[in-house]
Design a protein around this nucleic acid. Structure first.
Lengths: 256, 256
DNA sequence: AAGTGGTCTAGACCACTTC
DNA sequence: AAGTGGTCTAGACCACTTC
């Protein structure tokens, strides 16, 4: 593990354990330099990681402090609050960088939930013009196309429509669709997934979607359209995922 | 302007002008050090900014390359694609760090659109228990509470419910609700807004919301619940904003 | 005046890719 | 073997806050 990662992790542990409470002042940068035998830039790097996670905030001339964030993220669900609302959402998906598992399978099985899939379509086709543009390929190139519903503990949560260029991710089999396609891309093909560009919207379920997700037609769905990129910048997937609005949420920490 | 900001901006301009095309290789770090008369860490910092924006990707041992992102972000709207969909969304709100204006007023008026508000409620109350928890205050403390509808070119887009502790943002007047409350917080009160923690969901419009947003009851809305923090970590607002799903979207670049 | 974080230098050393 | 980005040092200098 890198030095700045070690330092960041140590501090994060102290915050999570309550050893460092909200509004507490962290040791100064120079203090930590001495304690870890590193130079300022390394401590600064560690602080940046934690700042990005929304855990701390540095104030020039004053010090670095633990942010008061336990409330929002510990409750597990947002409160009913202003409008009559239901309980806990099960498909919670964080934006936070680098320490969250990617994809539906990884984020849920990491929490000990059973993930399953129903596959409604799996074919090789020419992508629609707009999809080809997003994938940086020609509409005459071939892509895998599949539609599947992801379930948590047997309950349908998300319907996914995905295009993947066969030249980039060759050898995809129907079998893999029942498990993690990202695991196939990373482990079997040895490719490195590096980023996603997303657009998030709220839409109503079509009749077909409502049936597949066991909802009423026009029920609100959280839609995430995304292009996934490999580390060399090649787009490897275009997908649209629509999730039951009552059971899904996205979390985000936005540092200005 | 800081050196790394200058370098990042120069490169970004070259990408936006097309001078650096997708998949082009950037000058090497050492090259740029020479050219700008700076050290490696400074160039690296510039690269980090652009990496975070999703514009470039560095590959150790090989070089740094322009990512192929024009498609997703240039179209102005996502394509109809798989499911029958409508046209351009007007309320587009990026996640990207540090160069986007914050809040509804700033992001839209920056693009030359007229922003107006309808205020449905403005009062001082004790916050619900859950809101008090998020704001790190007692339920017996007082908060401003207001509900307003934000309009673009006269058309209602978003309905907002906001709580702000009166001890943190004293002196809020009804007048300000017709303009930017964030401008009041930053410019009039001199406070520094530093981050937001958000949860994003899809919900159906209540009857009242449907009427205020001129939609059908149960129409899909994109909901953003957020706690806003000042630079010293004090929560200054808890708000829930629900936006017309047909006219709003969130954008995000997620680097792993 | 003393303390604190932010930027930056000039370089060393390393891991990895490319040829 | 040569080239490239990533981590890190030991410090200088600065902007800002606190007292």
């Amino acid at each position: 593990m890198l030095k700045y990662e070690t330092i960041a992790q140590n501090i994060q542990s102290r915050i999570e354990s309550g050893d460092l409470a909200p509004n507490d002042k962290l040791p100064t940068v120079v203090d930590l330099c001495d304690r870890y035998g590193v130079s300022k830039i390394t401590v600064k790097r560690a602080f940046e990681i934690l700042t990005e996670k929304g855990l701390i905030a540095s104030k020039r001339g004053s010090g670095t402090y633990v942010k008061n964030t336990t409330e929002l993220f510990d409750t597990g669900s947002v409160d009913p609050l202003l409008v009559g609302e239901d309980g806990t959402r099960e498909d919670t998906f964080g934006f936070t960088r680098s320490d969250q598992p990617i994809g539906f399978t990884a984020s849920h099985s990491a929490r000990g939930r059973s993930v399953s899939s129903v596959v409604y379509d799996f074919s090789v086709t020419n992508p629609p013009e707009s999809v080809a543009r997003h994938l940086n390929i020609s509409p005459y190139d071939f892509t895998y196309y599949f539609c599947r519903v992801r379930c948590l503990e047997g309950e349908p949560i998300t319907i996914e429509y995905t295009y993947m260029p066969i030249d980039v991710t060759p050898g995809l089999k129907r079998d893999q669709l029942y498990h993690s396609v990202y695991a196939f891309v990373q482990d079997t093909l040895g490719l490195k997934i590096s980023s996603f560009h997303r657009i998030i919207r709220a839409v109503g379920a079509t009749e077909e979607e409502a049936e597949r997700l066991q909802l009423d037609t026009s029920a609100p769905l959280l839609e995430i359209s995304q292009v996934g990129f490999l580390d060399d910048g090649t787009p490897f997937e275009f997908s649209v995922a629509r999730s039951n609005g009552k059971r899904s949420e996205l979390r985000d920490v936005n540092v200005i």
